[in-house]
Amino acid sequence: MIVLFHRLAGSLFALAVPLAVLLLPAATLADGAERLAERLQVSGQPMPVASVHETPLAGFYQVRLETGEAFYSDAEGKFFLVGDLYENGEGGLTNLTEQARNVERAEQLAKVPESERVVFRGTGDSRAELVVFTDTTCPYCRQFHEEVSTLNEMGIEVHYLAFPRAGMNSQGARILEQIWCADNRSEAMNAGKRQEAISGSTDCDNPVEDQYHLGMAVGVQGTPAIVLPDGRLVPGYVPAERLADMLGLAK
Rank of each mutant, 00 (worst) to 15 (best):
A128L: 02
Y86F: 15
L109R: 02
D84N: 14
V148W: 03
T97S: 12
E114W: 04
L65E: 13
A110C: 04
Q62E: 14
D183E: 11
Y140T: 07
S126D: 08
G83P: 00
P164M: 07
T97W: 03
Y160P: 01
A173V: 07
G68A: 06
E54Q: 15
I175W: 11
A182I: 02
H145P: 02
S170E: 05
Y72W: 08
T67F: 06
N102S: 12
R142C: 02
N169G: 11
R101C: 03
P113L: 10
G91R: 11
D74P: 14
W180M: 01
L161P: 01
I179Y: 00
F163G: 03
R185P: 06
S170Y: 07
E87D: 15
E104P: 01
T134R: 06
E114S: 11
N152K: 11
A166R: 15
C141K: 04
S126A: 15
E69V: 10
V63F: 08
T150F: 04
S149H: 15
R117S: 13
V119G: 01
L65S: 11
V132K: 09
E157K: 15
N184M: 02
K78N: 09
N95G: 07
Q143A: 14
F133W: 02
E157S: 14
T137C: 13
G92T: 13
T97R: 12
A173G: 06
S73Y: 12
Y61K: 09
E146H: 15
I175H: 09
E87N: 14
E104N: 00
F144D: 04
D125W: 01
R165T: 09
L109K: 00
E114M: 12
A182S: 04
Q143F: 02
I156Q: 02
E87H: 13
A58C: 10
R64N: 06
